[in-house]
Amino acid sequence: MSKPILEVEHLTQHFKINRKEVVHAVDDVSFTIARGQTLGLVGESGCGKSSCARSIIRIYDPTGGKILLDGEDITHMSQKELQPRRKKMQMIFQDPYASLNARMTVRDIIAEPLLAHHIVKSKEEANDYVYPILERVGLTREHAGRYAHEFSGGQRQRVGIARALVLQPELVICDEPISALDVSIQAQVVNLLRDYQEEKGLAYLFIAHDLSMVRYVSDMVGVMYLGQLVELCGAEEIYSHPLHPYTQGLLASIPVANPKLAREKQTSGIEGDLPSPVNPPSGCRFRTRCPYAKAVCAEVAPCMHEVAPGHSLACHLYD
């Protein structure tokens, strides 16, 4: 088997807010993404999913750990060294309104990566790439001369996708690409991403908080809580056999459409709020909200370990 496209080892991302206090946005997160596979990353708002994505694509400088892109360590590369390698890794952003420059036409937006990597020399030349990719994402040539603000949310997000895909990357990081879209548009965008994956065999790191959508697109699913990965396993496995209490709680909080089933369902989602990432709880970070918390949970931080083939977990309940 060929080496994985992305390996993340003990990735840590801290942000200083003043001299004393530090936000522990991402703490000791490890996972790998094989070529052509999708890893879904789920968790509550503020649990560090986006920070994790931004560290991997090196918008932030990681505090610790290692990021291997296609076997190459990019953790501490300078932006200059990194530039040619960015071709392999692209990102789709959450907000289709904020992620496109309002002063540029769609042609300029999609041509920007081509010009940055010297694939084409002029904007006229770029049309040979821009038109096919526009048609691929379901837009037309006529749209190339338009400004981003003239489009609907779904169309904008497809422009964002076209920008990410025009370089034919091997890994695309999707930072909640559908959470700002209407439900009817979400399926359209997700199907586009899946079709393209089948066609070109690229890998996704798919970040979302919509669990049913993650199940639909992912091969593997990682669950994050307060900057740490707590469970990592196959997509079907996590829905059929969730082991970590947090994962169970998350799944229990999915609304059920059938009112009869909804009444039977235990209403116990997860109580309380996410603790502050500035002062995370000692030991297991989930213990403050965990219904099964024991004394050991406050003292020893659980590590990720494999409890079944392809199913890793960080919880004292399964030691």
Binding site: I59, L82, K87, D95, A98, S99, E112
Partner: peptide, 10 residues
């Protein structure tokens, strides 16, 4: 985000 996008593009 559009500036972050430009940075990730390279």
């Amino acid at each position: 985000e559009f500036v972050l996008a430009a940075r990730t593009i390279g």
